[in-house]
């Protein structure tokens, strides 16, 4: 393993040294393809982010794929209703590994202004492992770009070996999450306890 200082010294002389892990993650981080998938008004900001003014293409994430088979990133942009939640989970299941999720906006994080609605899911993190959450209602395109950069940072820092290696290299992590079913009053199950463990508040 080459030291950071030596690497910088070599770089000043025009010699670039890298490891296979860095090269692999560099390629992965700069070619994140999102799924064309908008649920509500946040999707308008997502469209704006991919257009010329904000130009998501600078970060290699402009290729919005209309099929989950070709996408790496699911941007949950908008209010997830309980009717839509099974579809979202199923689309996530159909995406190939490695896959990442950005929860965009207050609704996707927690239900947002519609949290009191009987038909609104209180956050997509009840069913899916969210990597980056963007606050805002709706978040500006810059916020989405910042989220993509945060995700790229996360991808770049992932070790290819070890216990916290990315999920596509870990055979123990399941590829699919259980799709909730429409129950009589709520989705069944109302949450996936494997991905959603809310902190329990103890009142004294």
């Amino acid at each position: 393993m080459i030291e950071e200082g030596l690497k910088n010294e070599l770089q000043k002389q025009g010699v670039y040294v890298t490891s296979l892990q860095e090269l692999y993650n560099w390629g992965r981080a700069n070619s994140v393809w999102p799924l064309t998938f908008g649920l509500a008004c946040c999707a308008i900001e997502m469209m704006a982010a991919s257009m010329s003014r904000f130009d998501l293409a600078r970060f290699g994430a402009e290729v919005f794929r209309p099929s989950p088979r070709q996408a790496d990133l699911m941007i949950v942009a908008g209010t997830v209703t309980k009717k839509m939640a099974p579809l979202v989970v199923r689309l996530y299941n159909q995406m190939p590994e490695p896959k990442y999720v950005i929860a965009m906006g207050a609704c996707a994080i927690s239900g947002g202004p519609f949290k009191q609605g009987y038909n609104v899911l209180k956050g997509i993190d009840r069913y899916l492992p969210v990597d980056v959450a963007i606050p805002g209602c709706p978040p500006r395109p810059e916020a989405l770009i910042h989220a993509i950069m945060t995700l790229q940072e996360k991808i770049r820092n992932q070790k290819l070996t070890g216990p916290d290696r990315p999920r596509h290299l870990n055979a123990e992590i399941e590829g699919e999450y259980p799709v909730p079913a429409y129950g009589k009053h709520d989705l069944e199950p109302p949450k996936n306890p494997d991905v959603w463990q809310p902190p329990t508040m103890t009142r004294t």
Binding site: P86, L87, R90, N93, L169, A171, E174, G175, E176
Partner: peptide, 20 residues
Amino acid sequence: FFSPQKPGNDKNDTYECGLA
């Protein structure tokens, strides 16, 4: 050689619209 395959019922499904 490096990536484990993770097939599943949803992933191997024919349609991709989200609906079963």
